[in-house]
Design a protein around this nucleic acid. Sequence first.
DNA 1: CAGTTATTATTAGCTCGCTAACTATCATTG
DNA 2: CAATGATAGTTAGCGAGCTAATAATAACTG
Lengths: 148, 148
Amino acid sequence: MKFEDTVSHLLSRVATAHKAHLEKRLAAVGLHGGQLSVLFELWRRDGRRQVDLAREIGLATPTVNKILGGMIEVGLVDRTRLEDDARATRIYLTDEGHAMRAKVEEVWLEVEEELLSEFTESERLILFSLLTKVRNYYFGVDPDQVDD
Amino acid sequence: MKFEDTVSHLLSRVATAHKAHLEKRLAAVGLHGGQLSVLFELWRRDGRRQVDLAREIGLATPTVNKILGGMIEVGLVDRTRLEDDARATRIYLTDEGHAMRAKVEEVWLEVEEELLSEFTESERLILFSLLTKVRNYYFGVDPDQVDD
DNA sequence: CAGTTATTATTAGCTCGCTAACTATCATTG
DNA sequence: CAATGATAGTTAGCGAGCTAATAATAACTG
């Protein structure tokens, strides 16, 4: 058989290339890829616990914990103990964490446009819809997709 | 803006989930994800130099070097110095490296079928073609795609 | 042919992803 | 209320990707 003819193989290859590419583009605003995935979630709503963030993002809790450690160091977020549960913490964006959003939006639109520059409008929509289907295979259907 | 509505974001999420999933499935045959990407290339043709493998796979040479170190340890490949160039090495599959192919094919077909179980035949073809377009954006058009 | 430049492999060190194992705390139940 | 079990965060350690820097060798050039 030809492994090259499978979607899985193609997806793996594209995945690593895309991640490496993102990392390079994010360096311009002083971010790492993992930090961004956490920021995406915090920009939706901050003040949540690490375990909740991890579940939403789809990462293991130690991964999120490590990324947050780096983000605290560079001053993007704060970690405060929960008042009524001494086990848990709440993660809040700092002013810098909020301010980062504008910078990232700029880069993000560029990255998206460059990636899809050779795609027609309908190809973009189809790719988005098929990738959503793959995402649903791994994460289940996103409830936020319906309303909101 | 909503980052969730971009292909880049979707691709990042799907990418990590897919890689994590592959890693789990490959554990059944005793392989790691990085080893597999090298094997894919060696199964096409072995006896090449590390730098050539890295270029074809689309990885940095230190990455390939590290992966090969692990593969040599577990006996999947051999590394021999080049006769006419003392800098370079040639990477050859061992018998075990060749034999691994059959095991991987089995797993691979399963993974592919499960991933695409909810996709129609035409959706599969379209997804493959659109992902190929993304790959070409990152790697350029593959010359092997034409003939062979 | 001596000196510079380019290439190959490698090492070191970083982020990111994981699992396993540990600690502290909460919740439950006897 | 004491013991057991569940939960939150963390630490340790692994593989995979990267860049930067080294060492050894080849190739080119004056």
